[in-house]
């Protein structure tokens, strides 16, 4: 599915300083019954965000109006567990375009890259610094610069380089996806398949 290309994003951020946030928390399984990719943002972090009677949990960060923005900052090992791409869809649909953490689970990272959400892996120290800065001032901004692979905290008070493979970077900068690429090497794939028995 096409997504908006990604270049530079400057935004305030929402901090979620919890480790091992699994995709069941990002979107619980009971909300995976759609046959179209629509409306998943409503159920992002459903059981952390709402009580069982659907009233908002006032102590959860997404219900605190002081915090807003297009960047989600999560604790170590963000996105573990189930492969459900719905987790990345819910994050995108809610309005986030980038997730920052000191460590991401593999499948979640791939899913994000495939739907136009940029996962930015920073050092443990830099992540702590981001959390502290936002805690002190919720209006602190982060700038994620994909072209230069650089994330900057506030008005350049600190920055860090982040890794992304150049193929995926090119895709995100231009809004391309893998099927575009693979469709163009179809004859190579057919040739390969003919030598690979079922």
């Amino acid at each position: 599915m096409p997504y908006d290309s990604f270049n530079i994003l400057t935004s305030t951020a929402i901090p979620l300083p919890i480790e091992n946030v699994d995709t069941d928390q990002i979107i619980p399984a009971r909300f995976l019954k759609a046959t179209e990719r629509k409306g998943f943002g409503e159920n992002l972090f459903r059981d952390w965000r709402f009580n069982q009677d659907d009233s908002p949990k006032t102590d959860f960060i997404l219900n605190n109006s002081a915090y807003k923005g297009k960047i989600l900052v999560g604790g170590h090992n963000f996105g573990s567990g189930s492969s459900r791409e719905h987790a990345a869809w819910a994050i995108y649909d809610y309005g986030f375009r980038s997730v920052v953490s000191s460590f991401f689970a593999d499948i979640f990272r791939n899913n994000c890259l495939n739907v136009g959400v940029l996962p930015v892996q920073v050092s443990v120290e830099f992540l702590s610094q981001i959390f502290e800065s936002i805690e002190q001032d919720p209006n602190t901004t982060l700038t994620v610069d994909l072209f230069n692979q650089k994330i900057t905290l506030g008005a350049a008070e600190a920055s860090e380089f982040f890794e992304i493979n150049s193929y995926k970077k090119e895709n995100l900068l231009n809004g391309y996806d893998d099927i575009d690429y693979l469709s163009n090497i179809k004859t190579d794939i057919q040739k390969f398949a003919s030598t690979t028995p079922l």
């Binding site: 599915m1 990345a88 791939n110 899913n111 495939n114 996806d177 893998d178 099927i179 469709s183």
Partner: peptide, 17 residues
């Protein structure tokens, strides 16, 4: 395990990146 974009990729091209 793979995500849904990758499921689409495999259906369409029998390959994954």
């Amino acid at each position: 395990g793979i995500g849904t974009s990758e499921v689409e990729m495999v259906l369409a091209t029998q390959c994954i990146m």
